[in-house]
Design a protein around this nucleic acid. Structure first.
Lengths: 215, 215
DNA sequence: TTTCGCTTCAAACGAGCGTTTGAATTTCAA
DNA sequence: TTGAAATTCAAACGCTCGTTTGAAGCGAAA
């Protein structure tokens, strides 16, 4: 009908506003978390009206859901890290690849970095939206980590041991990404350029592979 | 003067109110962080008047500062973990002791657990009060972790490597303590009783000592 | 050009926040 | 017992929050 056609044509400016809001919301939620990120700041950065959030997404929670969908899509992109790509590598290389990929946000301040930071917020301040969102599909970072640790652990390892090891590995890069800004200041004063990132990957891979005693 | 005497004597009921406020503030800030924890909820739990916070502590930030002081005192207590106690143990036992001590909050829902959770909040949402508080004295958990890793690393290890390894170790127990509630729910469903805690210490100690390849 | 949805907009609403106020109450030396 | 200082209290202030409202702007079909 003409209604639909109108909607489709008019959706060009609609999509502009929607996309600007999602982009602004991603950066705001990454900075301040879901509760701390205000609709006023989001619409200000998106150069949109405050009411636009409710008009296009039904409310703040609807906008956040769209951000999470975009984040999931970004992680699922094969360009980020393909599960089968991990299987093709040796266990050691798979581990290094995993660490490197999830530490990349330290030097590339891109969308993925902001998505990881949103996940970090959720680990301290879980929102209902996020809980419902991941209820039936654990975040990819955990599935990839499990795939890596299973390459190392013996077949007879208990499910609990696998889970412990998986969480142990998964949170290692998340910590450095989440706390990067704090670590950049005294008393740590860690500045992450590309060389420092490589050294960090080396150190973490060494620790994870052989432990403290093997460094 | 009589003024001072009065103040000293009257301070009995004053101390009651102050202590109740600090205790309530500790649990509220542990649950909701500094920004998310409201003065109204704190005074409600302490069964005190809202204005009491400003009267006794000058404001919300003053109360938070007192909580951080109490937290520091709790960590500095030798009963928690004595740095020299670590040196008396073998490197392996020092590592196990360190992990066990910082994972204890998983089964003991005590004050220390709440203080650790406040630190977790600060790693995502740093408050000015906290930043000023730790500016010239890094939290004990990091100093202890450095002491442990130095037992393992070779003398010629670079300062950066020591820092990487120290952070790597320090954040391992913090993760499990911080995310305990989330890990208790699907898809992980980890319930931490005392036996599970021992198994977790075993697993983490094994991973940290010998790495994934040595499990 | 008129008409009709879709979208934008400024303004306001109600709720929660930290803080202030000034009076009421308690405490204790004199 | 009296009087002054310390403490408590209910109420209100000013602010930010997410959301709602109704009018204005807009583009395309008629």
């Amino acid at each position: 009908m003409s209604n639909l056609d109108q909607a489709r044509v008019a959706s060009r400016s609609t999509e502009t506003t929607r996309a600007a809001l999602i982009k602004a919301a991603t950066s705001v939620f990454a900075e301040y978390g879901y509760d701390g990120g205000s609709v006023r700041l989001i619409t200000q950065r998106a150069m949109a009206n405050q009411a636009a959030v409710n008009y296009h997404f039904g409310g703040k929670d609807g906008l956040y859901r769209e951000v999470l969908i975009a984040a999931t899509r970004a992680f699922e992109e094969n360009a980020f890290l393909d599960p089968e790509e991990l299987d093709a590598l040796s266990p050691e290389d798979a581990l290094r690849r995993y660490l490197h990929q999830f530490l990349l946000p330290l030097v590339k301040r891109d969308r993925v970095s902001r998505f990881l930071r949103i996940f970090a917020w959720e680990s301290v301040q879980p929102s209902e939206v996020f809980s419902a969102f991941i209820a039936h599909s654990p975040p990819r970072i955990f599935r990839l980590a499990e795939r890596v640790v299973r390459r190392f652990l013996p077949q007879e390892a208990s499910a609990e041991t696998v889970t412990f090891a998986m969480l142990w590995l998964a949170q290692q890069p998340m910590f450095f990404v989440r706390d990067a800004e704090r670590l950049a200041q005294p008393p740590f004063s860690l500045k992450f350029d590309e060389d420092a990132l490589e050294r960090l990957v080396d150190t973490l891979a060494g620790l994870s592979l052989r432990g403290l005693a093997g460094v």
